[in-house]
Design a protein around this nucleic acid. Sequence first.
DNA 1: TGAATTAGTTAATTAGACTAACAAATGAAA
DNA 2: TTTCATTTGTTAGTCTAATTAACTAATTCA
Lengths: 382, 382
Amino acid sequence: MNKHSQTQIRAHNESLVLETLLLQQPLSRAQLSRRTRLNKVTISEIVSHLMAQQLIVESGSGQSRSGRRPTLLEINAGTRLALAIDLRPDEWVFYAAWLDGSSCGPPLIMPAPVYQRDAFLPALQLALQQFLQQLPERPLAGLCLGIHGNVYENRILFTPYYHLAELDLAGPLQLSLHCPVYLMNEANLCALGDLGLGLAQDNFISISIHSGIGAGLIQNGRLQSGQQGFSGEIGHLIAVPGGKPCPCGNYGCVEQYASERALLDRYRELSGATGASFEQFLNACRADQPAAADCLNQFVAYMAILLNNVCRLTDPAAVVLHSRLATVLPNLLPRIAAAPRCRIPNGQLLQPSQHDLDSTGAGGIYLVLQQFYGVERLKLKR
Amino acid sequence: MNKHSQTQIRAHNESLVLETLLLQQPLSRAQLSRRTRLNKVTISEIVSHLMAQQLIVESGSGQSRSGRRPTLLEINAGTRLALAIDLRPDEWVFYAAWLDGSSCGPPLIMPAPVYQRDAFLPALQLALQQFLQQLPERPLAGLCLGIHGNVYENRILFTPYYHLAELDLAGPLQLSLHCPVYLMNEANLCALGDLGLGLAQDNFISISIHSGIGAGLIQNGRLQSGQQGFSGEIGHLIAVPGGKPCPCGNYGCVEQYASERALLDRYRELSGATGASFEQFLNACRADQPAAADCLNQFVAYMAILLNNVCRLTDPAAVVLHSRLATVLPNLLPRIAAAPRCRIPNGQLLQPSQHDLDSTGAGGIYLVLQQFYGVERLKLKR
DNA sequence: TGAATTAGTTAATTAGACTAACAAATGAAA
DNA sequence: TTTCATTTGTTAGTCTAATTAACTAATTCA
């Protein structure tokens, strides 16, 4: 607990005005006064200050039934760009958004270059330059990198697919882009994305299933990243005591049974299609082929255990699942929720991600804007 | 996020002063000014206000090397009493403390009366009256009841041992005691107790093993009770898919393998001592009898899995274990931490409760004082 | 045209923290 | 004993931010 003083009040209330505008713009001063419960006069002062900083602008006048028409205010979104990159092991996805969170064009997807530790940063710099050339030229509000691995205080501690640990990405990028650069675990970003886009609120858990399984934990509207940034490593919850060995050194981690990689391995084994891709597996699932169906049964069973364990410990209001499987097979989530071992209490929704592949990007943009506006909690207009 | 105004500043800063005094009293105005970084003048104002409310008092003058001697201030602890009761299934334990958290005599332990739903509240009222007669006569700052079951917003939702759900304890007690009454889950109270007594800080998990297994989750110095107060139900994490049936309706809950009840059942079976008490089991453990040792091996193995799962999800800085087993067998915790499946990262301490049976009471007192002083986070002098 | 209504501004008030200056108390040095 | 530096704590006045009250401005409707 720190001391409070007047300047903090003003900073807090300015953030409150920005937050309100971001979610509900355009709004008049009078509307802002009613929604924030700050006095009209205070709002006028804050508004003129924010206008002087070019953070908000007047955008014409609105309608009224009777009485003077309101002057509408909105976020001055076009002055800067926020960037996010999802650095997946196989491909890099580049996102750009304006300061109100609205997208600036579709994401750019490129295959990740062949891994070489020393070449990683230069390749990223180059790709970024190419991406920036496609965008309107604006100063940057910030860049967020989604890392498939463990990150703490902008340092990469561990990556499972290739060795990025302790590679300094933030420093050099910060210098060349002249903007703050943030690193964050990909599953945690997904959770922030769900939070920002209002998919789930306050207390929820966002589970990402790719090659591995990770999660982001939101409690009281805040991401809980744990003491050392390792929270949400649910792929390594033990589902089968003494089960399959895991590269983490343990046995029976759920990741060895319910990740995309585990499912694909099992599908290849059962079907005999040793070279099958995950897309082929998905097709087989859609076609209800026996080998694929068997894999899905296993997936449902282990996800049910995983969800039970996660919900028993944290009691979330909702669980958001980010998985290509859930997208392709709309029947999957109800099956998991109905599985006998998945005792999710009533009212705890299990829902699919609604922006699908782009949660990570949305989360990155969310993080950049949150920092840019100095706001603790942010909701963005959909 | 709410609007901020001056009155909130003052409330916040008064809390800050109280917090500082509770942890480090006695302190002079000058010391308070330095520690809180509030101006001397502000401190003087706040102090005179708090003295007018009789919350703090001057307690003589301190030493100085040169210059005027400081007037020491301390919490006016003797004006009220804070009460806590641990309503265990088998016995009730009554705690009383002064407003600085210091104990007012030893706890009173009495066997719980034979369960009868209608007689529960009258019996409790009677026992409380008897307890109060032993204490100095003071107005009460509050009473906290530790419930072995699920509680949300002062309502009992579920109790495993006898049917207290929806029994209104808080309302009648509040009327007869003329003070606020709080209900809280016992494991959550343990966590608050550990927090208040400084055993662990900010991010930790406190595990209580009795007949069942529960936990309290502290993140960023706050108890996370989940969306409906059900967080920390780690006894029902599934340790063995398709394992032993549990009254909760699921199979293979860790509670069926590592709770006191489960251990005792297994010990009775293995040793043939069908009527053995838990104390006899503990003695057998100390004596290293084979049947007991076998039970302990199982306990260590399942605790290792449980701790791995909990730590992977929440990444705490420490895990505090409240268990009679750990108290009696100092070797047990190192064994758990060293078990192959308990991959607690380095630096994540596994430690026994240091105030043992009284964590629940300490947590109850903590909660009452926290509410009484209107402080978010409280540390008490040991 | 004027009454009612809503938006937004101006001037004065209030609350709270801060600065500067000072009084009070005390140990150490002259 | 006196003086001086040092520390504690108070008093008077200033600054910032939010609020109230009273106003002007703009618009609809009768």
